[in-house]
Write a protein that binds this DNA or RNA. Structure first.
Lengths: 145, 145
DNA sequence: CTGCGTGCAAAGTATTTGCAAACCG
DNA sequence: CGGTTTGCAAATACTTTGCACGCAG
């Protein structure tokens, strides 16, 4: 999955070991991670690894479309891999499994820039869904004692 | 507009001067405010007014449905008055004018608990819209020099 | 080689906690 | 009156900045 690499290079950014490892982590984990969690993982691979650098890279990767910023009201931020990053300008949202954190992509949302809603001209919108994924539903059923 | 008062009392909470003033502020401002902004306003009315108390009351008022928590990725949180609080369990979302901060209510969103999306069973969802309200659109046009 | 990327130290800012005093109902 | 609410101090936690060194291209 070097789509991410394409995006990074395409944005004129360097493909450093740190960034490769971050992409690999998100690709492997498939769920939202906080800066601290990312750092914890990186520490296993690099002797030195500062949190500020992690923050900077997360922002960088979000800017170039590899990651997306999980919105919420909580104090701690988190990021997740943006599925299908190749279709750069394709409008979509994400659904996150509240049990295992798996991220899915939702293409339909019914909103588009410029539409009129309640006397407002829509400029942007945030949609974030939370649900239970198939495999967690199955687990739930099994767990029925 | 003592709908808010009803909600507060209904939740078994006390209707203190502080809370009355907070409700009045949001009612009058009609836009999202950060804890600090709320405190700044309260200081005009009360000699003493700690920020921790403001945080606590904002959370309290959000919990009982008077306010809603504005979601986003930013570091600073903010709250706004939840319009039509009376229809307690009526599902709706908000649209915020990016120019003046005015808040509108959106009743339709196409999502409902339990629906299936992309292999997930939807449990909850966040929808927040940002747009330009009628009056700001008009202003824009006038400003056309 | 050149400028982006990174580490580290330190600062900055938002939010939370604990407890005693005040007050609503 | 009793439990909720509040102020204050201080602690926490998260995030950002600045600068020197290192490495990708």
């Amino acid at each position: 999955m070097n789509e991410a690499y394409t995006l990074i290079r395409g944005a004129g950014l360097k493909l450093t070991p740190r960034r490769r490892e971050m992409v690999a982590l998100f690709l492997h984990t498939q769920k939202p991670l906080s800066p601290l969690e990312v750092q914890d993982h990186l520490k296993l691979h690099f002797r030195q690894c500062g949190l500020p650098g992690v923050y900077r890279n997360l922002e960088t990767l979000a800017d170039c479309g590899v990651l997306f910023r999980v919105v919420g009201f909580a104090r701690e931020r988190s990021y997740a891999l943006c599925c299908r990053p190749v279709q750069e300008h394709h409008h979509h949202h994400h659904i996150i499994c509240s049990s295992c954190g798996k991220v899915g992509q939702v293409d339909q949302c019914g909103y588009h820039e410029g539409m009129m809603i309640e006397g407002f001209r829509l400029v942007s919108h945030v949609v974030q869904l939370s649900g239970i994924c198939d495999s967690c539903v199955s687990k739930e059923k099994e767990g029925f004692s």
